[in-house]
Design a protein around this nucleic acid. Sequence first.
DNA 1: AATTTTTTTCCTGGTT
DNA 2: CAACCAGGAAAAAAAT
Length: 274
Amino acid sequence: MSITPSATLESPLTSTWGPTNPYHDGPLVTSGYASRLWPHDSQPHFWSKYQVWEWLQQVMDIHQIDASSLPFQNFDMDGHQLCSLNYHDFIRAAGSVGHILYNSITELKSGGQYHLDIGQLELKHETDLCPFPDVSYPPGEIYDPSVQSLAPNISPTPSSPEIKRSFSRGHQVKKHNPRGTHLWEFIRDILLNPERNPGLIKWEDRTEGVFRFLKSEAVAQLWGKKKNNSSMTYEKLSRAMRYYYKREILERVDGRRLVYKFGRNARGWRDAEK
DNA sequence: AATTTTTTTCCTGGTT
DNA sequence: CAACCAGGAAAAAAAT
């Protein structure tokens, strides 16, 4: 079992699953996978490569996600190998959809009893406040900004695979829906989507990663909307921002109000990432 | 289920 | 004064 099948996991993943797609509108999929057993045995460990492939198809299908956006090559393995993948492996292999796949396989491995509510893999798109895509970005560390989930222009940037080490662990049962984006990623994504950024935040110095909030409260509202917290305020959002200083995700910029700067631990904010 | 990481709340006090 | 910035504390939420 020392064989970590994460060798095949490393591809640019230039996909376009994302927000503005025609799929999921309303509350999609509410029932679990377990409720309806797969055509094959529910013991993923014994699946053949073909069954793994079939499972992928079905999961994507159930969630109405364009299957062509999934790099099947990364799943060229049998059930046994599939079961040894950990959470991170899935994210690496499938990006944001990795969450779903992980949840699915985890459930199946554990006998499948619960149902996860992917109710808001993407909370409904914008609404009124701001037409911002609430993309479910991949955790940012493996990917580069080329994974613009809404950009029709797929930048074929063959990202640099600076994969981090990860330990292989057993499986865990997870229930909540993935909340792919952290605050700083949320902010970054607003910056990265000028066309959908109604003057909320602006780059002060693109190459240095310095930016400034133009509409602090509006951004806070948007963030709150994403977190389903209508009482979010800039005051509170900024506190969270300040915690990033210690972690070097943000660097302090004093003197200028509402100005922040991405730090060395913030990935994906510039065009050519190291 | 337990632990760890992040974010949210609230707050006191200083600054622009 | 209003709108920010700095952090400490503690609690809640998420992730793993």
